[in-house]
């Protein structure tokens, strides 16, 4: 599983950071920063949840 973050779409609501702090962080301007684009098995389910929660649809899961 690989996650993609579109920083142009992100509005900095911070929900992903709250949901999986091990995968998502925010930059100085509040915009999403991926700590890893390949969450491990332990965090994958929560990362998927974070993707569905994103209000601006800035997060997506890439098919590999």
């Amino acid at each position: 599983m690989r996650i993609k973050a579109d920083t142009g779409l992100c509005v900095g609501s911070g929900q992903c950071v709250l949901t999986v702090p091990a995968v998502f962080d925010q930059g100085d301007d509040g915009i999403v920063v991926l700590l890893t684009d390949r969450p491990d098995d332990e965090t994958a389910a929560r990362a998927r949840h974070a993707v569905t929660l994103c209000p601006s649809r800035a997060l997506s899961i890439l098919r590999e």
């Binding site: 609501s13 911070g14 929900q15 950071v17 925010q26 930059g27 100085d28 301007d29 509040g30 209000p55």
Partner: peptide, 15 residues
């Protein structure tokens, strides 16, 4: 819920 949470917690998070 997200929309409410993020507008009603403006001091949360960075920077």
């Amino acid at each position: 819920k997200t929309a409410l949470w993020s507008t009603s917690h403006p001091t949360f998070g960075l920077p």
